[in-house]
Simulated scan of single mutants.
Amino acid sequence: MQSFWRRNKGFVVFSLILVVLIGFASHTAGQRVYPSRLEGIIMQGLAPFSRASTVLVQRINGFVHNLRGLFVLRARNFELESKLAALQMQANLLVESERENQRLRDLLDYKEANPTLALKLAKVINIGQNPWQQELVIDQGSKHGVKINTPVITHQGFVGRVYEVLPTCSKVVLVIDSRGPIAAQVQETRVRGTLEADPDRPGMLRLIRLSREAAVQPGYAIITAGTAALNLPKGILVGYVESVEPTADGLQLEASVRPVVGFDSLEDVLLVLNAGEQ
Results as ranks from 00 to 15, higher is better:
I182Y: 01
A183S: 03
A183K: 07
A184V: 02
Q185N: 06
V186A: 00
Q187A: 12
E188C: 02
E188F: 10
R190M: 12
R190D: 05
R192T: 08
R192K: 10
G193A: 04
G193Y: 10
G193E: 03
T194I: 14
T194M: 07
T194L: 04
L195P: 03
E196A: 05
E196T: 11
D198E: 08
D198C: 14
D198N: 07
P199K: 05
D200I: 05
R201G: 00
R201M: 07
R201A: 12
R201H: 14
R201S: 14
P202S: 12
P202W: 14
M204S: 06
M204L: 06
L205I: 15
L205W: 14
L207Y: 02
L207D: 00
L207P: 02
I208M: 05
I208P: 01
I208A: 08
I208F: 05
I208G: 02
I208L: 04
I208D: 05
I208N: 06
R209Q: 15
L210P: 00
L210H: 05
L210T: 11
S211C: 06
R212W: 07
R212Y: 14
R212H: 15
A214M: 15
A214C: 10
A214V: 14
A215P: 00
A215S: 11
A215I: 09
V216G: 11
V216W: 05
Q217I: 13
G219V: 13
G219F: 10
Y220R: 06
Y220H: 09
T224L: 03
T224R: 02
A225P: 02
A225W: 07
T227Y: 06
T227I: 04
T227M: 04
A228P: 03
A228C: 02
A228I: 15
A229Y: 03
A229C: 02
A229S: 08
A229R: 06
L230T: 12
L232Q: 15
L232I: 11
P233Y: 03
K234Y: 01
K234I: 07
K234W: 01
G235L: 04
I236M: 10
L237C: 03
L237A: 04
L237V: 12
G239H: 02
V241Q: 04
V241C: 05
V241P: 00
E242I: 14
E242M: 06
E242T: 07
S243M: 14
S243L: 08
S243V: 06
V244H: 05
V244I: 13
E245R: 10
E245M: 09
E245H: 04
